[in-house]
Structures are given as C-alpha cells and as structure tokens.
Amino acid sequence: MEPTKLPPVAPALRARIEDFLAEIARLIDDDAVECWPEAFAEDATYRIIPRDAFEAGQPVGILSCEGRGMMRDRVLALRTANIFEPHRTCHVLGRPRLTPATDGTIEARSTFALYRTQQGGRTELFAAGKYLDRIIERDGALRLASREVVLESGQVDILIVLPI
C-alpha cells in the first residue's frame, strides 16, 4: 500500500496548528489545567480511550466529556475533590499529520508520549498513543471541536486524574 498523499495545508496554518497543539500540552504540563477547557469549542467532546476499545467501536473509554462544562467539572474535581498523590506530567508530541476536511475543519493526528513524575522523584512513561483532533477556527482563534486520546495500552498505572 502506498502512503496517502495529503492535500497541502498552507505552511502558515500548519505552524499555527503546531503551536496550538503544543500550547494545549503546556497547559497540562505547567499546572495551568484551568485553561485547558478553553482550548476547546463550547460543545466539543473529549475522550480518553484504549486503542482496543476504540478499534472495537466501544463507546466507553476511560474518561469522556461532552462540552466544556464537563471539562471544567473535571478540573474543579481534581483541584478540590479528588485525592491523589501529587505528580507532574511531561508530554512529548510528534509532528501532526493534517488533513483538511470538506467542512473547513482540519483533522490532525499526532502521536504523543506522556511521562509522569511522582513526588518521590520517579519519572516513568505513563502513556503513549495518539491524538485524533478536529480543529476549527472561531473568532480568529483555533479550537478543538473534538479530541480522541487513543492510548496504546488499556492498562493504566495507578490512576488518571489530569487530562492527557
């Protein structure tokens, strides 16, 4: 099978999208997770799902949000309600593969590796997988209309509380 030839995305737009995706990862890694929902459109969806469940078409993953309200609830819960051992994250992002869709949105697929550092100092690979994003432009700013976080493994070490 030959690699798919993708329609070109203007270099300036690609640069904006790459910066946008890097910024979303930074918000999580730099403990600015309150701003993370603002990267999404108001009615956007977000889901973390293991690859096996995703490929089997199963609707339940590990975490899902319908709309920015549920994302803000997640952030509020992790700040005020949930109890867990303090840890930090470090996302390493791959170059996004961009596909313009006919409706004017852009589909982006990028791989990631996510390292987690516990308060004791252990740094470990916590997750690897891909983001399947649909990106739109609203009022001059890029937003995620949907993000599927597809994890290579369906086995989570300890817990997930921060978005990925």
């Binding site: 799902i49 339940v60 086995q155 070490d157």
Partner: peptide, 9 residues
C-alpha cells in the same frame, strides 16, 4: 459490552 480497561494498583 460498552467498554473495558484495567488499572494496575
């Protein structure tokens, strides 16, 4: 089945 995952504790 709606979904599945596991957790290592």
């Amino acid at each position: 089945r709606l979904g599945q995952h596991s957790q290592v504790i």
